[in-house]
Nucleic acid binder design. Structure first.
Lengths: 112, 112
DNA sequence: CAAATATATGCTTATATGGGAATATAAGTC
DNA sequence: GACTTATATTCCCATATAAGCATATATTTG
């Protein structure tokens, strides 16, 4: 077997810097494809392609407005990723550190 | 220009399912390469390769123990990703919804 | 040093993918 | 319908990459 199927998921979609830029832009409100392309200084086809990927994983929604296609962010599609990463929150969160410290103290007292 | 340099960053490292599995495993404690390979049912070379990527982005640390190399998780390297994603927390968080609602109410009162 | 165990690296193959350029499709205007 | 504007798609290229396999490089043991 040569390579695992690239099941394009949210993690993959978001691994691309330009797509993160699109997400940041759309978090401010819906934008047309050309707006996105101009603001992020990319060619229109690239914008369309990135938007296609984002749409496939449910990160953006589209609505037609005349000639234009207005894309908006569906940030809730990021939640699975958020849930995944918060599993490791204790590795950097101070309050988690304190919680662990507290639990350690409890354990020490238990042993007495 | 053909393709953007894949500046192998945390987002990329984590986009690979097998590497997320390694992260999950190491969050329980350090493991040797062979342990990782066996537990995650991958060949040893693949394990070594994934570990190399994870090490390059600072997500894991190694220490030698005789013949073995024990890998451990450095979860704090995930923080940049956490910081990024929490910018969009309001898109799924209830408490954020309530905060927004509250702010909207304040605004309405202001206008009166 | 030889043998065994643990890990890393190199090579090949198949596939994925981002960018560029050109073109197709869709919608609006006259 | 012809023309314009907006967006999507297709083709090509170059590179990235994951897996398989073989092999090289430790490290330990006898």
């Amino acid at each position: 077997m040569p390579r695992a199927p690239t099941t394009s998921d949210v993690f993959n979609a978001v691994a691309e810097p330009q797509r993160r830029a699109i997400i940041a832009l759309l978090s401010e409100g819906e934008r047309s494809v050309n707006q996105i392309a101009e603001l992020l200084e990319m060619n229109q086809p690239q914008a369309s392609k990135h938007l296609k990927v984002l749409k496939e994983v449910g990160l953006v929604a589209v609505r037609g407005d005349g000639q234009q296609r207005l894309y908006s962010l569906n940030g809730s599609a990021l939640k699975p990723m958020y849930d995944w990463i918060t599993k490791y929150e204790r590795f950097w969160s101070e309050s988690f550190d304190r919680l662990e410290e507290y639990l350690n103290q409890l354990q020490r007292k238990e042993k007495k």
